[in-house]
């Protein structure tokens, strides 16, 4: 009896697994094939058919050559690292400050009432618009970039953390009241962990914005970094170089964003179960 059941069960299970995994593989392969097709159409149909000048729109092969030259001539990688450094330091500083300020604002009404006008005002300022000011104040180097990135990262993290710390349900609060929990215990065992998924959402937004922040800051005034590389390539009508820079930026943003998401899923591991 039991044998029959398990025998009947096993093939069914593996069949389903195979279908799932092969389905995934097929989708991946399709996506890759479509991407190659897209590049091919661009290279051999779009450009020849329209006769667009390479100074306006380069072919994929020209971008690849530009990337290769950047790599061997040794300017692409160092500039990528400069931008990465600005993004990482600014992101860590901005999100740490956003989190640290969110805690007192969410916990004490008085702090919120004192600080919120400044926060609202700062938030209303388009951060990108004040980038030139930062360059004037803090120079062409790393610090002005870090400050702009930090400022841009600050808000999504701050706002999400405040919302998260306030998302405690009434019954959860009563649960801690029944135990006469102290304010600190409530924060440590309820409010803080409960805010986890909100904080991670804020970090996700922040990390994407931080790359934008770094590039804009470099546009405004910098000697190094992918942003300044792109600007210089643009002035030289080297569109392939612009595309190569943008590609590097995209890779940075994608890797950072994937890392934050992965870390977030590890930290708030329970959120997936809840959504089920």
């Amino acid at each position: 009896m039991t044998d029959q059941v398990s025998m009947a069960m096993r093939p069914a299970k593996t069949k389903r697994n195979r279908r799932l995994s092969s389905g995934f593989d097929r989708v991946t392969m399709l996506a890759i094939a479509l991407f190659i097709l897209f590049l091919a159409v661009w290279e051999w149909i779009l450009i020849p058919a329209t006769g667009v000048s390479p100074a306006l729109l380069p072919r994929p092969s020209q971008i690849a050559v530009s990337l290769y030259q950047g790599a061997v001539q040794g300017y692409l990688l160092p500039n990528t690292f400069i931008t990465l450094q600005e993004v990482l330091i600014g992101f860590v500083v901005g999100s740490a400050l956003g989190f640290a300020l969110a805690v007192p604002v969410a916990e004490w009404r008085a702090v919120e009432r004192i600080l919120s006008p400044y926060v609202v005002a700062l938030q209303a300022i388009p951060k990108v618009a004040i980038a030139p000011l930062f360059v004037v104040w803090f120079g062409y180097g790393l610090s002005s970039k870090v400050l702009i990135v930090g400022l841009i990262t600050f808000f999504p993290v701050f706002i999400n953390t405040v919302a998260g710390l306030r998302s405690v349900a009434h019954e959860q609060r009563e649960l801690f009241m029944i135990y006469n929990a102290t304010r600190w215990q409530r924060f440590r065992y309820l409010t803080l962990p409960n805010s986890g998924s909100f904080v991670v959402a804020g970090l996700n937004v922040g990390v994407t914005l931080s790359v934008i922040g770094a590039v804009v800051a470099e546009f405004v005034g910098a000697q190094e970094g992918l942003g300044s590389l792109i600007v210089r390539a643009g002035f030289a009508m080297d569109t392939a170089g612009v595309f190569a820079g943008v590609l590097c930026l995209t890779v940075i943003a994608a890797i950072l964003s994937a890392t934050v998401q992965l870390l977030g899923r590890k930290i708030v591991f329970w959120a997936n179960d809840l959504r089920r």
Binding site: E171, L175, I178, W270
Partner: peptide
């Protein structure tokens, strides 16, 4: 001791950790 209409468990704690919440408090 109080039991609410919904379980009000803390999703980041295991069953045992939830049951022993009083100890942490």
């Amino acid at each position: 001791g109080m039991v609410f209409q919904s379980p009000v468990l803390l999703p980041w704690r295991t069953v045992l950790e939830n049951a022993t919440l009083a100890a942490d408090l």
